[in-house]
C-alpha cells in the first residue's frame, strides 16, 4: 500500500494528508481528516449525502479519489459557518424545520450553497432540479425547498442593503 502525500485546501485552510490511491475523497475527509460532517449514503453518487464543493463545483466526494484533489480547494459543511455565526442557509434550515434525521442535511446545504452562489434568485423548479442529486427520505422536500428559497431571499436582502449602504457612503 503506497500512500501519497497530497496537499489541498479544505475550508480555507491548507491541509496535507497521506492517502492510498483507492481511497475516495469521502474516505479521506471522514477517516483520515476526521471531518465526519460529510456523510456516506450510497457510494454510487446517487444520494448526494457526500456532496462537497471542489474548486467551486458541487461534486459527490464518494466519486472523487483523494489523490485527484492535489492542489484543489474543498468546501465541506464544517466550513459553512464562520465561527458560531451560521449562514443564512443554515439558519433557514433551522427556522423552516427543513431537517429531521439530518443525515442528508450537510449534502443539501452544500448543494444549495452551490446553487445560490451561481443563481441568487432561483424559481421553485430551479431549486428542485438543483437538488435532484440529493435524496431526503424524511421531509418530502417541502420544507427544504422553502428553506433554500427563504435563504436566497435573505441573501439578496443582505446584498442589496450592503450595496445600498455602499452607494450611500459613495454618495
Amino acid at each position: 500500500m503506497t500512500k501519497e502525500l497530497i496537499e489541498a485546501t479544505i475550508n480555507g485552510e491548507p491541509v496535507e494528508f497521506l492517502c492510498e490511491p483507492r481511497q475516495s475523497l469521502l474516505e479521506v475527509l471522514r477517516d483520515v481528516l476526521n471531518l465526519t460532517g460529510t456523510k456516506e449514503g450510497c457510494l454510487t453518487g446517487d444520494c448526494g449525502a457526500c456532496s462537497v464543493i471542489l474548486d467551486g463545483r458541487v461534486v459527490c466526494s464518494c466519486l472523487v479519489l483523494g489523490v485527484e484533489v492535489a492542489g484543489g480547494a474543498i468546501e465541506t459543511v464544517e466550513g459553512l459557518a464562520e465561527g458560531t455565526h451560521l449562514t443564512e442557509l443554515q439558519q433557514t434550515f433551522l427556522e423552516d424545520a427543513a431537517l429531521q434525521c439530518g443525515i442528508c442535511t450537510p449534502g443539501f446545504l452544500i448543494a444549495a450553497k452551490a446553487l445560490l452562489d451561481s443563481n441568487p434568485d432561483p424559481s421553485e423548479t430551479e431549486v428542485r432540479y438543483a437538488l435532484a442529486g440529493n435524496l431526503c427520505r424524511c421531509t418530502g422536500y417541502d420544507k427544504i425547498v422553502r428553506a433554500v428559497m427563504d435563504a436566497a431571499a435573505l441573501m439578496r436582502q443582505r446584498q442589496s442593503s450592503s450595496s445600498s449602504a455602499k452607494q450611500g457612503r459613495e454618495a
Binding site: G45, G48, S51, L54, R57, V58, V59, C60, L63, V64, A111, A114, L115, A130, A132, G133, N134
Partner: peptide
C-alpha cells in the same frame, strides 16, 4: 446526465 454533482465531473 445524472445530477448537478455528476455533471460537474
Amino acid at each position: 446526465i445524472g445530477s448537478v454533482q455528476i455533471r460537474h465531473r
